[in-house]
């Protein structure tokens, strides 16, 4: 079998301090993205459990798998959940969802919970899109921009480079700093052309790490252009898979000349978390929570 350098680890988590059986309002948010899917379970406004998996070819099945994995070893079943919100690219294909809400609104709300009410600008770098969202102190969206047309500045673009250079995707950030001198960014925005450019650089004898550094900078610069279109107001937070890639994050915050807030949870769950939070409110509003 050939090595799949783009593959990252799937996992789940549960809060050991919470006994869900005491909870009145149990909700779930499921974010079915084009690359990864997450399920987040909330109990009475607190984060209880979550999962993060690769999206399969079938959206409904991916939603169910993500939920099952978040529920694993909790003793909880779907019957205990009062309200479910589907979000993300496959949000209308979540079989058990009571309502679908766009990932923009969910990210705003999720980031507000994860990073606190001071967060104003959220950059979400997902598998196949890149979003810039401005929110108020309640996590309500004031302005947004979503680019899902082009792979540059997305996780998919980084996966292409992981494969090209035969480096596991989780190591890219760190390796990109192991260079003698910071190289010029790759000049092509387009991933296809950047790949051609990188192949040329390798042929000229560039070490792989230098090529990685050049690509991480290019990705950072491109995302900066998107952020500047909306404008950046602090506090600033980064969510999504690329938030875990220091090679992009450090260069990005360097260009913007600001610091990003440190995440308290996995950066990939922001959308599902927002969904679960919307579900908390909706469960009360629709009279599903026993008093």
């Amino acid at each position: 079998m050939t090595t799949e350098y783009w593959r990252w680890k799937e996992y789940n988590w549960k809060n050991p301090d919470i006994d869900w059986k005491d909870a009145k309002n149990i909700t779930v948010g499921v974010d079915v993205g084009s690359v990864s899917s997450q399920a987040v379970i909330m109990t009475d406004g607190e984060l209880y459990a979550y999962s993060n998996m690769r999206t399969g070819s079938d959206s409904p099945e991916s939603a169910e798998n993500a939920l099952d994995w978040a529920l694993k070893d909790t003793g909880m079943t779907l019957d205990n959940i009062l309200y479910a919100v589907g979000t993300g690219y496959g949000r209308v294909n979540v079989p058990f969802a009571d309502r679908a809400i766009t990932e923009i609104a969910c990210h705003g709300r999720g980031a507000n919970f994860m990073y606190g009410p001071t967060v104003r600008t959220i950059l979400d770098m997902g598998g196949q899109d890149c979003k810039v969202i401005q929110v108020d102190e309640k996590g309500k969206v004031q302005e947004f921009l979503m680019n899902d047309k082009c792979a540059a500045g997305t996780g998919r673009g980084m996966e292409v480079f992981a494969d090209l250079l035969e480096i596991p995707i989780e190591d890219i950030g760190e390796l990109s700093f192991q260079v003698d001198e910071e190289p010029e960014p790759v000049s092509s925005t387009c991933v296809i052309f950047a790949k051609t450019e990188a192949t040329g650089l390798l042929r000229q004898g560039w070490p792989k790490n230098d090529v990685l550094a050049a690509y991480c900078s290019a990705m950072a610069l491109r995302v900066v252009a998107l952020i500047e279109r909306v404008g950046v107001e602090e506090d600033f937070a980064i969510t999504g898979g690329i938030a875990k890639n220091a090679g992009v994050v450090k260069r990005l915050t360097g260009y913007l000349n600001l610091e990003a807030l440190q995440p308290k949870h996995d950066t990939q769950i922001a959308g599902a978390l927002g969904g679960a939070l919307f579900a908390q409110t909706l469960a009360v509003k629709e009279g599903k929570v026993p008093s």
Partner: peptide
């Protein structure tokens, strides 16, 4: 898909 990178994935799913 418009983007060539995303279209590659789409072509692969069509083959599947």
């Amino acid at each position: 898909a418009q983007c060539a990178v995303f279209a590659e994935s789409e072509v692969v799913s069509l083959v599947h």
